[in-house]
Design a protein around this nucleic acid. Structure first.
Lengths: 186, 186
DNA sequence: ACCTGAACACCGTTCAAGT
DNA sequence: ACCTGAACACCGTTCAAGT
């Protein structure tokens, strides 16, 4: 086990351990010392790979945005509107699958400057969604892109807090209605 | 100064101080000891009014949801669809006015059980929105209510993280489009 | 690259005591 | 009742000295 840490695997082991703790106890309860303990190293070993706690969280949140973009990119559907709706559903499913990481992605604890990788990866997610919206409406439409992202994000975040029913059918219907009304507006 | 604390004002003074610190440094950086210092009392005086840190944050987040519901309720507009759009705009404006409190409302640090007042106040916000949607579509439509809340919440949360343009016109257009397509669907 | 171990200035929370 | 200082077990972070 610990032999691998001597071969450059500690960085990844820390990310895995942190992600597990994140899902178990939430972002606020995530301590660097816990992560180190969980990975079986001393409390200051993480500083060999991350400048500080924020840098570790930045890496995890950036991973989250990349995974989100991948999920959205690999969605299937015949019509552009179907694909856009499926993207929204994938977004909500991703939040549901890893609520701790999702919370971290949209609530970085600290100054925005401390999360550069997250910001860059989030722009990537925006680009994926913007391309899908463009396929539906045939042009760049920042309002439609913002609305599409807002709808998916809102459904995901509100469901996470049990403020709307945790109902897959509701999400399916909501994203379909949106995508169709967008397609009908052209 | 400290004389007023002896007359039952400390609870409110703590809430005011905490809200200020929340807006200045964000929820993650809010320490109970800082709040006490800021209010001019000893570090454990807050325990006379709040069971723990979560209980203080619960009170602030619940205030936030009540203020949000009030903002939405007092919105003007001739047509039901105009009022619904204005509610969405009021939601985004409220998040913009107090981003620290908004972040706290949707990222309570700890178990959901620790935030009962917040949960109750949030249900109230849902009811205000549901009534407005009912006026537009003429019936209970959980998908429409969830979509309306999700759109407003998503726009607010994404703008807060600079993931969509911080543009008032964009919010106005997005909420109007949504409200009109909802009215047109009946 | 990692470890031990100490140290610093913080936390949230509890306790015993003061008015 | 309300407030206080001392105390406990934690943190994040840094340092010194080792393998």
């Amino acid at each position: 086990m610990s032999a691998t840490y001597h071969h450059g695997d500690l960085r990844n082991a820390l990310l895995v351990a942190a992600t597990e703790l994140l899902e178990a106890h939430g972002p606020a309860a995530l301590s660097l010392r816990d992560v180190a303990r969980s990975a079986g190293v001393s409390h200051n070993a993480p500083y060999r790979h991350f400048a500080n706690r924020d840098a570790l969280l930045d890496a995890i949140a950036a991973d989250g945005f990349r995974a989100l973009a991948d999920d959205m990119r690999t969605v299937k559907g015949r019509q552009p509107a179907d694909r856009l709706a499926a993207m929204g559903q994938a977004y909500v499913a991703a939040a549901r699958a890893r609520p701790g990481r999702f919370a971290l992605m949209f609530a970085p604890p600290g100054a925005p400057d401390a999360f550069p990788a997250t910001a860059a990866a989030a722009q990537h997610t925006y680009a994926v969604l913007a391309a899908a919206v463009r396929e539906v409406v045939g042009r760049d439409d920042p309002v439609a892109v913002a609305s599409a992202w807002a709808l998916a994000h809102g459904l995901a975040d509100l469901a996470r807090h049990a403020l709307i029913p945790a109902d897959v059918a509701l999400v399916t219907t909501a994203t379909r209605r949106f995508a169709r009304s967008l397609a009908a507006s052209v």
